[in-house]
Amino acid sequence: MADTDTKTGLDGVIAAAKTQAPGRGLPPVHLWNPAHCGDIDIFIRKDGVWFHEGTPIGREALVRLFSTVLRKDPDGFHLVTPVEKMKIRVEDAPFVATRVDREGAALKFLTNVGDEVEAGPETGIRVEMDADSGEPRPYLHVRRGLEALITRPVFYELVEMAEERQGPEGPELGIESNGAWFPLGPPGLHVL
């Protein structure tokens, strides 16, 4: 019997995440369809800090491990194993984009959990504008509906690399990566 068949809760999540051999990619959480087992007291704050039972998870390796079995379903975020599905709370996006580099035609991002993501047609950048403050909230699609909030310093780097293009609603400031164009705000905002 597999280790993940005998362990439940947090131990089961750890065992399921560890079953993926190094260099083979992420566990296939999108293929697992276990029954919902309830909630687990894990919370991801908007700055990317993970908490368990109100205490920050201090082991970076454990957070990275949990991030590999994280899935977004229509009813929220879950840690998923082949035999369990436990709902967690996420304040904003589950990850934070902490670095960006321009490498040829690609923008390469690094997240707080070690994901390396190239922006492009499948992994887009989107920017929401806060209705009250008018400030941008930029996000990067990481994988299967999971996003990273782009930190302010990284967003400033994107703005420095940006160019202006004429869009259907007027001039817009944006950036291109792997052939995809990503506006960094509403049309005309940058020309005020």
Rank of each mutant, 00 (worst) to 15 (best):
M1Y: 11
M1G: 11
K7S: 00
K7I: 07
T8V: 02
G12F: 03
I14G: 07
K18M: 13
T19K: 10
A21C: 06
G23M: 03
R24Q: 15
R24S: 14
W32I: 00
H36M: 05
G38T: 02
G38H: 08
G38R: 07
I40P: 01
I42A: 13
I42D: 04
F51I: 01
H52S: 00
E53Q: 15
I57E: 10
R59H: 12
R59D: 12
R64A: 09
L65A: 02
L70E: 06
D73Q: 13
P74H: 11
D75F: 15
L79P: 03
V80L: 02
T81G: 01
V83N: 15
E84R: 15
M86S: 13
K87M: 09
I88Q: 00
I88N: 01
A93P: 07
A97P: 05
R99Q: 08
D101T: 12
K108M: 10
T111L: 01
E116G: 10
E116H: 05
E118V: 07
E118P: 08
G120Q: 04
E122G: 05
M129E: 12
M129H: 11
M129T: 15
D132Y: 04
P136D: 15
P138Q: 14
Y139W: 06
L140K: 13
V142Y: 14
R143D: 00
R143M: 00
L146I: 05
I150D: 07
T151I: 05
E157Y: 04
L158W: 02
L158I: 08
A162D: 05
A162C: 05
A162E: 01
Q166E: 14
G167C: 13
G170P: 00
G170Q: 00
P171S: 12
N178E: 06
N178G: 00
A180Y: 02
F182L: 04
L184N: 07
L184C: 08
L184S: 04
G188C: 07
L189D: 09
